[in-house]
Nucleic acid binder design. Structure first.
Lengths: 134, 134
DNA sequence: CTAATAAGTTTTATATGCCTGACTTTTGAG
DNA sequence: CTCAAAAGTCAGGCATATAAAACTTATTAG
C-alpha cells in the first residue's frame, strides 16, 4: 500500500462488498465477491492479499474472508457514506433510486470525514426547515 | 477510447485543465498542463495524443494545444459541475474553500447530466426557502 | 545571419494497479 | 476415494504514471 495508508477506490469497494456479504451470510467467499463487483474470479485473489497485508481482512487461501476490526471500521464508514449519499440523492434531489445508488457508489470515495459530517448536518437542517425538502 | 466514448476521469481532468489554461492564456502548453495537474511533463504527450485521436483537442507536436468544439463542450460541462459542487460545499455545507474545491474536483466525474440538473434545482429551492441555507 | 545555449517537447524504458482467460490445486460431499 | 465446486496461479493486456535521453524550437551574443 502507499505510505499514507490510503486505499484505492477499488480496495474500498472490496471492503464494502465484504462487509455486505458478511452481514448477509456471516462470511464472504471469493466467488461472491467477484460476482458482487462484476469482475472475474481471478482478480479477487491478489486484491484479497493486499487487503490482508494491510490487516484489513482475515484471509487464508481456500478459506472464508472476514473483516478485521480495522477493516470493519473502514468498511462501515464507507457504507455509511454510501447510504447517506444514496438517500440524499433519492429523497432530496429526487433522482431515481437506481441512479442515486450509482452516484452514491462513485461519490462515496470522494468525501472526507469532516465534509461528510457537515453534509449530514446540512441535510438535518434542511429536513427541519419549513418545506424545502418536500 | 472505449466504445461508449466514455472518458476516464484522468482524461476529463486534462480537458478541464486545457480549458482553464486556454481561458487564462488563450492557448495551453504541455508544460503548463503538467504543472497544473501535478504530473511530470513526460506523462502529458500520450494523453494529448489520446485526446487528439478522439477529436477533442487540436494538437501538433511542439505546438500549442487548443480544444475542438467537441472538447470544449465536454470541458465546459465538467467545469460547470466543478464550480457548482465547489459552491455547494463551500456555501451550503460550509466546508473550507480548499476542501470544497478538492471534493468538487473528485465528485465532478461522478455525476451525470440529469442528476446535475436536479441537484441545481434542489439548491435553488433551498436558496429560496425560509432560512435553511443560512 | 549564425551558432551556441536554453527552454520545451517527445521518446523510450520501466513501474503500478487492476483486469481477463486458461489452467492447476484444494476442499469437502457422497 | 472420487469428483465437482471453489479457489488459486500465471501470463498477458490496458491505462496511467515516472525518469532520463533525444530531439525541436526559441533566443541571444557576436
Amino acid at each position: 500500500m502507499n505510505k499514507h495508508n490510503q486505499l484505492s477506490e477499488t480496495l474500498e469497494d472490496y471492503l464494502e462488498t465484504i462487509l455486505k456479504l458478511q452481514t448477509a451470510n456471516s462470511v464472504a467467499r471469493s466467488k461472491d465477491i467477484a460476482q458482487e463487483l462484476n469482475i472475474k474470479r481471478g482478480s479477487v485473489t491478489s486484491m484479497l492479499k493486499k487487503l490482508a497485508n494491510n490487516n484489513l481482512i482475515n484471509y487464508e487461501p481456500y478459506g472464508y474472508v472476514t473483516l478485521t476490526s480495522a477493516g470493519r471500521r473502514i468498511a462501515a464508514s464507507i457504507e455509511a457514506r454510501h447510504i447517506f449519499l444514496r438517500d440524499f440523492f433519492a429523497r432530496m434531489v429526487q433522482v431515481d433510486e437506481e441512479i442515486a445508488d450509482r452516484t452514491a457508489c462513485r461519490m462515496e470515495h470522494a468525501i472526507d470525514e469532516e465534509t461528510f459530517s457537515k453534509f449530514k448536518a446540512f441535510v438535518k437542517k434542511v429536513d427541519n426547515c419549513c418545506n424545502c425538502s418536500s
